[in-house]
Computed example of a mutant assay.
Amino acid sequence: MRRLQMDGRTTATALAAEVGLTVAPCHRRLKELESSGVIQGYRAVLDAAKVGLAFEALVFVTLRDRQHMLRFEAEVAGIPQVVEALRLFGEPDFLLRVRAVDLAAYQRFYDEVLVGLPGVEKLTSTIVMKNVKDGGQLPV
């Protein structure tokens, strides 16, 4: 699993050789991991700066009350600029990772989208200066 997290395009043949199995059992194990949901999918990792989305902000969101929780979550899930959304214990209620072209674009997004989300009481933004570690690989 560690190898697949580093390179999801690794073939079953290459993976089998690396872990000391023949191809058939390795392929079968991959299919089992996929069908059981351990492997949820495969994707390409894009360079945000090279696609014009170098600006990143972390937004802490506090809701007025819990009545808006599900509507807030549903709306956030449909916003492409929000690349990650985490519900937190305590306050704030959520942490959003937002991507934009630049500060001006983020400010428009903040004013036109974030402040209008259901139940928002308070938004606090911080700008990401440098991403030191990214990738989200699990320690397995």
Rank of each mutant, 00 (worst) to 15 (best):
M1N: 12
L4E: 13
L4A: 12
M6S: 13
D7Q: 12
A12I: 02
T13Q: 12
L15I: 07
L15A: 07
A17T: 08
E18F: 05
L21I: 00
T22E: 03
P25V: 01
H27M: 03
R28V: 04
R28P: 00
R29F: 05
E34M: 04
E34C: 05
S35E: 12
S36N: 08
G37H: 01
I39E: 01
Y42R: 15
R43N: 06
V45W: 04
L46I: 09
D47L: 06
A49Q: 11
K50V: 10
G52R: 04
A54N: 07
A54Q: 11
F55N: 07
E56A: 15
L58H: 14
L58A: 12
V59T: 12
T62Y: 04
R64T: 03
R64D: 04
R66A: 08
R66S: 15
H68V: 03
H68C: 08
M69T: 15
F72A: 06
E75Y: 10
E75K: 15
V76K: 12
P80Y: 14
V82R: 12
V83M: 09
V83K: 12
A85I: 07
R87E: 13
R87K: 15
F89I: 12
G90L: 08
G90K: 06
P92N: 13
L95M: 15
L96C: 10
A100Y: 03
A105F: 02
Y106C: 00
Y106W: 05
Y106N: 01
Q107G: 00
F109E: 13
D111I: 10
D111Q: 14
V113A: 09
V113M: 04
L114C: 11
L117C: 07
P118H: 06
G119N: 08
I127S: 05
M129W: 00
K130D: 09
N131A: 05
K133V: 09
P139V: 00
V140H: 03
